[in-house]
Simulated scan of single mutants.
Amino acid sequence: MIRVLLAALLCVAAEAADIDKLWDFDLPAESEQRFRTALVAAQREADVALQAELVTQIARARGLQGDMAAANAALDSLVPRLAELPPAVSVRYMLERGRLYQLATDIPKAKRWLRNALSHAQRHQLDYLAIDALQMLGYLETAKNAVGLQMQALNLALASQDPRAQNWLGVLYQNLGWTYRNQRDYPKALDFFRQAQAWHEQRGGGKPWLIARWSVAKVLRESGEPDKALLIQLDVERGWQKLGQTDGHVLEEIGENLLTLGRRAEARPYFVRALDVLSRDPWFARNEPARHARLAKLAQ
Rank of each mutant, 00 (worst) to 15 (best):
residue 118 L to K: 13
residue 231 L to M: 12
residue 15 E to C: 14
residue 200 H to R: 03
residue 152 Q to P: 02
residue 28 P to Q: 10
residue 100 L to N: 03
residue 297 K to H: 15
residue 90 S to T: 13
residue 247 D to E: 07
residue 34 R to P: 01
residue 85 L to V: 12
residue 29 A to V: 14
residue 208 P to L: 13
residue 236 V to P: 01
residue 59 A to H: 06
residue 298 L to H: 04
residue 80 P to Y: 11
residue 244 G to W: 05
residue 70 A to I: 13
residue 210 L to Y: 05
residue 284 F to S: 01
residue 90 S to E: 11
residue 231 L to Q: 09
residue 192 F to V: 05
residue 282 P to A: 14
residue 37 T to K: 13
residue 288 E to I: 06
residue 285 A to F: 02
residue 283 W to S: 13
residue 122 Q to G: 03
residue 229 A to C: 13
residue 180 Y to I: 10
residue 258 L to H: 07
residue 47 D to Q: 07
residue 251 L to W: 05
residue 44 R to Q: 08
residue 211 I to C: 02
residue 285 A to E: 14
residue 299 A to H: 04
residue 127 D to E: 11
residue 284 F to T: 04
residue 110 A to E: 02
residue 47 D to E: 14
residue 106 D to Y: 09
residue 64 L to R: 14
residue 289 P to W: 04
residue 292 H to W: 10
residue 235 D to Y: 09
residue 107 I to L: 14
residue 297 K to Y: 09
residue 210 L to D: 06
residue 111 K to H: 06
residue 29 A to E: 15
residue 242 K to P: 03
residue 147 V to G: 00
residue 3 R to Y: 14
residue 50 L to N: 12
residue 201 E to F: 14
residue 135 Q to G: 01
residue 214 W to M: 11
residue 259 L to C: 04
residue 103 L to A: 13
residue 191 D to C: 05
